[in-house]
């Protein structure tokens, strides 16, 4: 079974339901300062492992970059 999610505006197909921590690992985002929104709600870092990604979830992953 596959599920379809949106990560930073791009559609992504996953083979199984993962935790948010697994997804971030897959994306190579295990280090560095990021913040994650799941369907418009912030997920605290402490809940990355316990949060399961479901079909049609929309995820935003952000970082700090240069700006004025």
């Amino acid at each position: 079974m596959t599920i379809e999610i949106t990560v930073n505006g791009k559609t992504k197909t996953l083979v199984a339901e993962l935790s948010l921590a697994d997804l971030l690992q897959d994306l190579g985002m295990t280090k560095g300062r990021i913040a994650v929104e799941l369907n418009g709600h912030i997920v605290p870092r402490s809940q990355f492992s316990s949060k399961t990604i479901n079909n049609l979830d929309s995820i935003e992953i952000v970082q700090a970059i240069g700006g004025g």
Binding site: N8, L27, A35, I61, Q63, A64, I65, G68
Partner: peptide, 21 residues
Amino acid sequence: ITVAIRRVNLGQDKDEPSLLD
């Protein structure tokens, strides 16, 4: 110092330093 908050580029090199490094 001010910073902006933007989407992480999904293709980015994970070892590349970020601004806050």
